[in-house]
Amino acid sequence: MDKARFCHLTVDSVKKEAYVWHEADWKFSDEWHTHQMGQLIFVEKGLQYLHTAERTYLLPSQHCAWIPPGLAHRTSSPINPVYLRCIFLNKTSDSPFFKELNIFHTPKVLREMILFTEQWSRLEEEEPVEQDFIKALVGILPLTFNTSIPLVLPVPRDPRIARIVDYLTACVDKGGAVMNELKIPEVAATFNLSARTMERLFKQDIGITVAGYLKLYKMIKAVELLSISGENVKSVSMKVGYDSVSTFSNTFQQVLGLRPQEMMAP
């Protein structure tokens, strides 16, 4: 692998308290990695998935993620190009915000501050004005954070459940009749299980029911589609299996606390 194309894999070699990297066509790597530095990500355009050993997070357009230091992860995206604006931080604060991976709305003041850091992108030399500005940004982050958006899927540990999840998500991704004809007893029979046994194994492994997982995956798939320019709420609701736009919108708000229109690509 050409490490030069994946600077986020070697960013700890930069000897600064903060390192800014803005990239209009981010090159994703399937390699699991960690940073000694924490990472703030703002998605200017497109979307990305953040994968940890236990969960998969969707980071949509115009939203931020905070990845704490030392957390093993990898990244991916189903679309390109993806414009990411990243700030790697060696020093933060004792705020609980910096201890957990969070996906969150980008307040206007934070967005403007992140955009302002573009002038220091990939600068490896110390710059006093940059360092002072980043310190102010670090102080603002916990103050502007309200709540984490639940765009997260649990990762199965049981190989049997992993195969079922792959089957269910493939049906949703295909859409149309394949998805609309999904019946839990028939899915269970496909894997030589009873519906009751499949439900029990599902809850034991990932903590939610099959129907609950399907609903959550459909909503995350909807956010992914809404992040693509040219899509609208009606077209997305149909693609994830909802004939009624109002039912889709109400379910979306129930699961994510937002209306679909709030997640549409600008």
Rank of each mutant, 00 (worst) to 15 (best):
L110W: 00
K16V: 15
Y242M: 08
V109L: 13
L58A: 05
T10I: 12
I220R: 01
V255H: 02
D94G: 11
L141Y: 00
P150H: 03
I228V: 15
P154A: 03
D30K: 03
R55K: 14
I41S: 08
V138L: 05
P68G: 07
H8Y: 08
R5Y: 05
E118R: 09
K239Q: 08
C86S: 14
L50F: 05
R163W: 06
T34H: 06
K203C: 04
V155A: 13
A136F: 07
K91G: 00
G230I: 08
E124D: 13
D205Q: 05
S237M: 04
R85I: 00
V155R: 15
D132R: 10
I67Q: 09
A222D: 04
H8Q: 08
S95W: 03
E199R: 06
K16C: 12
R200N: 11
W66L: 10
V14H: 07
F133Q: 00
Q131D: 12
R111N: 05
R259A: 06
Y242P: 05
I220K: 02
R55C: 13
L182F: 09
K3D: 13
D173S: 14
A65I: 07
S76A: 15
V152W: 01
M238A: 12
M1F: 05
Y217V: 00
Y213W: 07
K99M: 12
S13T: 14
V138T: 14
